[in-house]
Design a protein around this nucleic acid. Structure first.
Lengths: 176, 176
DNA sequence: CGCGCGATTGAGTGAGCTCAAGCCTCGTGG
DNA sequence: CCACGAGGCTTGAGCTCACTCAATCGCGCG
């Protein structure tokens, strides 16, 4: 109902990768499967509404329209995951960080005027979490954010608050 | 109905990433959306059964059980995409290549005895395509395959045919 | 005040990239 | 039957971007 949840996967030696971010009001969970290798963790304070898995599955069986909505969300998550695979596999550190900021902007302001050139928001993740999201180290994330700041593409206050002066300049850094 | 299809996304400067492989008999396409930034290409000879988008969407509207099957496949694809994100973001070149071989084994022999320690198959992709799948260069893929061969984990014949002596040794290289 | 946590910054290293040369196989045409 | 060329692959040498390791900073809290 509110807050941000991160979905992670971990290798046996501790390397971690964030494989999804869920913003309210998404459905969270994996129906039709008894277990999953994915871990869900609150990234911010989260409030949610929880149902027994059995109940959800029965409800889905009885209501095709509910199942339809779940399908729509799952397709959207698949689109997002695949976009992110390009970022993970083919972009440089700078492009990854810029892409991440743009992603957050699009979540925070889902229906902002696409012509609006500025944005202002709090990062929902720590540097370490951003690194796990981008497949980078914390130091590299920090260096790239600093570079964006000294190049005057963004401003940073209190580590977490970001002000983007020109969305287009940020997009340029994200490598499209 | 048969063959392998690769789903790719491309950046404006030509960098390419394979974001999914589809083996028969999967459903291919993106319902409920007029366009997508994903390209589908045949990786092998492919035979398929095609319907107008409108027809499919009407069919889905009328048949909840068909929609349910589509939801199941979409959830499976999402699981696969997220597993792959860990590989792209957190694994070394050696681990990526070994993971790729294991992935192909699991597709080729969907229900092989999990205790069976050997496998024998043709790669459905060229080195260049494997590189685009793994977020590597063609040279790095080639070097890692050579290393697996020299270390006697696999044998390679005619570039495309792979024989795995010990699945467990390959799994060890894949980094779990 | 001291401590812990998160973040930044610097120096040095190395895994994977780039560029370049060469090999193998197969199909085509002389 | 062989010469040739093209495409796919391998191998080598050198370089670079991101990683590792380490020191330091700043802030909030007990």
């Amino acid at each position: 109902m509110s807050g941000v949840v991160k979905l992670t996967k971990t290798l046996s030696d501790g390397r971690e990768q964030i494989v999804g971010l869920q913003f309210a009001p998404d459905f969270l969970g994996r129906p039709f499967k008894s277990e999953s290798t994915i871990t869900a963790q609150a990234a911010t304070s989260v409030s949610l509404c929880s149902f027994p898995k059995r109940t959800v599955e029965n409800l889905l069986k009885k209501s095709p329209s509910l199942e339809h909505r779940l399908l729509q969300q799952t397709l959207r998550e698949l689109d997002e995951a695949r976009s992110w695979m390009v970022t993970l596999g083919r972009k440089t550190a700078m492009e990854k960080v810029a892409s991440f900021l743009l992603l957050i902007v699009s979540y925070i302001d889902p229906d902002a005027d696409p012509l609006c050139q500025t944005a202002d928001f709090d990062l929902p993740l720590t540097r370490a979490e951003i690194a796990d999201f981008l497949g980078l180290t914390i130091e590299t994330v920090s260096r790239q954010l600093t570079k964006l700041r000294v190049d005057d593409v963004i401003q940073i206050e209190h580590n977490r608050h970001i002000t983007v002066g020109s969305i287009d300049r940020l997009k340029f850094r994200a490598g499209f």
